[in-house]
């Protein structure tokens, strides 16, 4: 399996996430799209970790496992962002009875 397949797949997922953030208006769906972007990053980290393992250079293979551990922390960060988002979105919903981010434009002046 060439790494480039995975890289292209991750970029595809990433840009679908960006597209969602730019086009959708629902805050929950926005959050899902951000999670999608983070998933793409996590996938790429694991792929590169594997890639480095096959090409172990001056460092031992232990160096390559950094990617997987980073992916572990990134999964945690994705969870943190998701929970934060749901908390904030719910607090926002309680005030405005809506999760539409069009409301945010009212802040300007």
């Amino acid at each position: 399996m060439l790494t480039h397949f995975y890289v292209v797949l991750a970029f595809l997922l990433f840009s679908i996430g960006v597209m969602g953030v730019l086009t959708r208006r629902n805050a929950l769906v926005l959050l899902l799209c951000i999670e999608l972007m983070m998933s793409a990053g996590i996938l790429l980290l694991v792929v590169f970790s594997k890639m480095h393992l096959t090409h172990a250079n001056s460092f031992s293979g232990a160096q390559a496992s950094q990617g997987q551990i980073f992916a572990l922390f990134a999964i945690m960060a994705a969870a943190v962002i998701g929970i934060t988002g749901i908390a904030v979105i719910f607090a926002f919903f309680r005030k405005t009875r809506s999760v539409d981010i069009n409301f945010l434009n009212r802040l300007k002046n």
Partner: peptide, 12 residues
């Protein structure tokens, strides 16, 4: 998320 992607690419 963009920072994470950037870090992944740098790592790769």
């Amino acid at each position: 998320a963009i920072i994470l992607m950037g870090i992944a690419l740098i790592y790769g």
